[in-house]
């Protein structure tokens, strides 16, 4: 269980990105965070795995306050939290397999990783992760030779390698077309349902939110202005959505289920 209490982030330039945010995420949720650009979604997700240091507040995860961790303890905690990024954040010149194996770095000694040596077990895991995401035949290509959708699957595979209990996905599909967006989110959903990985994901499109979320928050100016359950969000129409979300809200376009099967590769 993740419990965030009184989380506040004020950047060095004085921008208040998060203002006394409180929420609880039970294990196994697929929590979607919505909000306008600049509302603090990325800041919130990055505070959880401490890519950003919160100014104030507690982030209690399995009884440990992540906000207070430093050094090795922080790294040990990070190992169990995967992260998927909008721009994939792959090491472009490295091979796909190297990018995926990088997910195991937290479990590998500096010495071994210096020479790029990973255990046989890790190599097998990487192979399995690639298969699960349907990109096993791309393993030895350079990451930047892949299409956007394939790159994001590498990003998900890297997070999967951490054997995480939670995945933070910061607009994972914002730079992909609708078909690929569904494909990636279906992979995340699968991880959520089969592996019981808690997912915290920020999204922009109402139909994606309705389709995947098990619970939703709305953020505005660093404050939570809306909390809804799966049922509540399913019943919501565009007008209500725009109200909490702002005028930028849009649908991705429905009826893509048929195409999805092809776009999805062999992963599902």
């Amino acid at each position: 269980m993740l419990e965030v209490r009184h989380l506040t982030k004020i950047y060095d330039d004085g921008t208040v990105a998060l203002r006394d945010v409180n929420f609880i995420v039970p294990d196994g949720e697929f929590l979607v965070i919505i909000g306008l650009s600049g509302s603090g979604k990325s800041t919130l997700l990055r505070c959880i795995n401490r890519l950003i240091d919160p100014t104030e507040g507690e982030i209690i995860w399995d009884g440990v306050d992540l906000a207070k961790l430093e050094g090795t303890e922080l790294r040990m905690a990070r190992r169990k939290i995967g992260m998927v990024f909008q721009h994939f954040n792959l090491v472009r010149r490295s091979s796909v397999i190297t990018n995926v194996l990088a997910g195991r770095l937290g479990y590998t000694s500096s010495w071994q990783s210096l020479f790029g040596r990973f255990s046989d077990e890790d190599n097998a895991k990487a192979q399995h992760a690639l298969e699960r995401l349907g990109i096993e035949d791309q393993a030895h290509k350079r990451a930047d030779e892949l299409s956007g959708g394939q790159q994001q699957r590498v990003g998900v595979a890297r997070a999967l390698m951490q054997e995480p209990k939670m995945i933070l996905a910061d607009e994972p599909v914002a730079s992909l077309d609708p078909v690929l967006a569904h494909s990636i989110l279906q992979h995340l959903e699968l991880l959520n349902q089969e592996d019981k990985i808690t997912i915290l994901c920020s999204l922009h499109y109402l139909d994606l939110v309705q389709r995947y979320a098990t619970s939703v928050f709305g953020l505005r100016d660093g404050e939570i202005v809306y909390r809804g359950t799966r049922e509540e969000i399913r019943g919501m129409n565009d007008e209500e959505f725009k109200e909490i979300y702002g005028q930028e809200a849009e649908r991705v376009g429905g009826g893509l289920q048929g195409d999805l099967l092809t776009a999805n590769g062999g992963g599902a």
Partner: peptide, 14 residues
């Protein structure tokens, strides 16, 4: 980006 991503896996500085 990649630096953040690798940091997020729990990797150390080296």
């Amino acid at each position: 980006g990649p630096i953040e991503a690798i940091q997020a896996t729990g990797a150390n500085w080296l």
